[in-house]
């Protein structure tokens, strides 16, 4: 069949690429996860111990679920803030559309690390925001109330993801046929109705993509919690990092990563199978 030949041609190259540089390394990770240790003789013997430790470890599991909750919130808020941006760009910005898009992307070309340092300048105890609050009399002394908390981690991450979430929403809004909206108006739909019944459903694939762009990296994030999270800010990604780099326990780090992978896959599966999203994503 012509069709299947075309399909294979299109999908072949990306598939080979993914196999070599992604499936193979993940396979290696699975092998790691059964090894007893990273060094010496422990490398050559295989065991299920790390899985058992993981299942029995309350801190690991509690933090995994907490981190998933935080990631969910961050992704939802970042997308809610990004949607109006994308909407404005797609429908109202006119000829300035591309310039505005660039304007929103360019800040991300400054290292993430430096932007976090800059956030500390804003949120820190002698920072911008605290100084303003002091001037306004909202607080009486300068103290680090705004930083070193889960909330600070979330604010920082939302800030980081907004442009990322905006792009897929924008690109799915862009393709909506303007005549469809005009027709809706002609048929007596209010703008809100037209939005809810036409624009929003048609942009859902972009929203789903934007959601994952924020949700997934947040789950494995470890730099932001370190820098602004304070004593209580650690997230699951920090524990993976600790097992991998500090304890030199590659097997445990692999088990923890694979568990995270599993959760996200289940989550993605549910999101795409349940509800109307399956048609939209073409699954």
């Amino acid at each position: 069949m012509k069709n299947s030949r075309r399909f294979l041609t299109l999908i072949g190259l990306p598939s080979i690429y993914l196999f070599l540089l992604f499936i193979l390394p993940v396979g290696l990770m699975v092998i790691f996860s059964f090894r007893e240790g990273t060094t010496g003789a422990a490398r050559d013997s295989f065991t299920l111990d790390h899985y058992i430790t993981f299942i029995n470890s309350r801190p690991f599991q509690r933090l995994l679920w907490q981190s998933a909750g935080i990631s969910f919130l961050v992704a939802v808020i970042a997308n809610s803030l990004a949607y109006p941006l994308a909407y404005y760009l797609a429908f109202q910005a006119g000829s300035q559309k591309n310039t505005l898009m660039m304007l929103l992307i360019i800040p991300t070309w400054t290292s993430y690390l430096l932007r976090i340092f800059a956030w500390k300048l804003i949120l820190g105890s002698t920072g911008l925001l605290n100084s303003v609050l002091l001037l306004l009399g909202v607080i009486e002394t300068l103290s680090p109330i705004l930083i070193y908390s889960r909330a600070a981690v979330m604010v920082t991450l939302i800030y980081v993801w907004i442009p990322f979430a905006m792009l897929p929403i924008f690109s799915s809004l862009e393709r909506i046929d303007r005549y469809l909206l005009e027709a809706a108006a002609d048929l007596g739909c209010t703008r809100l109705e037209a939005f809810l019944r036409i624009t929003l459903p048609l942009s859902l694939p972009g929203v789903v993509a934007g959601f994952f762009f924020a949700f997934i990296p947040t789950l494995g994030e470890f730099v932001t919690p370190l820098l602004v999270g304070g004593a209580q800010g650690s997230m699951y990604g920090n524990l993976i990092q600790d097992q991998f780099m500090r304890a030199l326990n590659w097997p445990m780090g692999s088990v923890m990563s694979l568990s995270m992978l599993l959760i996200v896959l289940v989550f993605m599966f549910l999101l795409t199978r349940l509800g109307p999203l399956s048609d939209l994503l073409g699954l």
Binding site: G37, P59, F60, R62, L239, D242, Q243, R246, A247
Partner: peptide, 17 residues
């Protein structure tokens, strides 16, 4: 030792969280 490294890291994970 590897065992000490592991044990101390695990304690640290628990303390941090």
């Amino acid at each position: 030792s590897a065992a000490q490294r592991q044990a101390w890291t695990d304690v640290w994970s628990e303390v941090k969280t």
